Simulated scan of single mutants.
Amino acid sequence: MSLNGQQIKQIIFKIAQMIDENKMYLTELDAAIGDGDHGINMSKGFQAVIDKIKDDNGDNIGDMLKKVSMALIANVGGASGPLYGTAFMKAGMWVGNRREISIEDYYNMLLEALNGIKARGRASIGEKTMVDSLEPAINELKVSIDNKFNELECLEKMVNSAKLGMENTKNIVATKGRASYLGERSIGHLDPGAVSCYLILKTIFEEVKKIKG
């Protein structure tokens, strides 16, 4: 895959644009089972991210991702700020001061992000959270890499698994966060965190596909 820091920066900008375009959809999902602010908060956070990294030269990917983390933690309200902030922080810590990453690096960065989210949110798969889209996606990415699929195929399979995991949150009773207060009534609703996680992974795949042509 071999993405350099400048390419990763452009992907982050695309994520910010995508979140802004979907902020009302994500907020509507959250209004059904949560505080009703997920999309608006995420958009605000990623606008702050753009401001934070716009002058970054991309020579130190880990440092850039830590800037993303701090902007999200400072600007995204509710649980999403600490969780997404932790994800980018852990990914940045793993990659360190490298200037480019491979598909294997990407897998390890996502795995570190997942472990950080699970520790911070004390969440496991099957509890109607972002873990339900992220964990199956990462597992699929590992299998695809091990089976030596080409990089775009690996990313596509990963995104398809994230989508299935996201869609399955409709069938899960929420046990975390504000949605847990609804109990059985949370069934039939998508988890907004699982949706935003899927959309981020999908955007990364689409942008890598453009870069690699």
Rank of each mutant, 00 (worst) to 15 (best):
N75T: 12
I101R: 02
A87G: 13
D105W: 02
E104C: 03
A71Y: 04
E100L: 02
Y84E: 09
N97Q: 14
M70C: 04
V95C: 12
R120A: 07
I101Q: 02
A91V: 06
D105I: 01
N97M: 05
G85R: 06
N75M: 10
N97W: 03
I103M: 10
A74T: 11
L111T: 06
S102A: 05
F88C: 03
A74L: 13
R99W: 02
M89D: 08
L111G: 00
V76F: 10
G78E: 11
R98Y: 06
W94G: 01
G81A: 07
R98K: 15
G77T: 14
R99I: 02
A119D: 14
G85Q: 09
N108F: 08
S80L: 05
M93H: 06
E112P: 01
M93R: 07
K118V: 02
S80V: 10
E100H: 09
K118N: 14
A74Q: 12
A79T: 15
W94F: 15
L83F: 09
G85C: 10
R98N: 12
A91K: 03
A71F: 04
G78I: 13
A71C: 07
A87T: 05
L83A: 09
G77P: 08
Y107T: 00
S102W: 00
L72C: 07
L114T: 01
S80D: 06
Y84I: 09
N108Y: 11
P82W: 10
G78W: 11
R99A: 09
A113N: 01
A74D: 13
N75H: 12
A79N: 10
S80T: 09
M89F: 15
A71S: 14
W94Y: 15
T86E: 04
I117D: 05
S80C: 12
G77R: 08
Y107Q: 01
Y106F: 15
A79W: 09
I103N: 04
R99F: 05
Y107K: 01
I73L: 10
V76A: 04
A74W: 02
V76Q: 07
K90C: 06
V76I: 15
I73F: 10
A79R: 06
M70P: 02
A79G: 12
N108G: 03
N108I: 00
R98V: 15
R99Q: 11
Y106S: 01
L114A: 13
N75Y: 04
W94P: 01
G77A: 12
M109P: 01
S102P: 03
F88L: 13
A113K: 00
T86H: 05
G81Q: 07
F88V: 13
P82M: 09
A119M: 12
T86G: 05
E100V: 01
L110K: 00
I73P: 03
G77D: 10
L72K: 04
L111I: 01
Y84R: 08
V95L: 13
K90D: 10
A71D: 11
A87M: 13
A91H: 08
G77C: 11
Y84F: 15
Y107P: 01
I101C: 02
N97E: 15
M89K: 14
E100T: 05
R120M: 13
A113F: 00
L110H: 00
W94N: 12
G116R: 01
A119E: 14
A71E: 11
G92Q: 11
W94L: 15
A113L: 13
F88N: 10
N115Y: 04
I103R: 00
R99E: 14
L72F: 05
G81S: 09
G96V: 10
S80N: 12
M93L: 15
K118M: 15
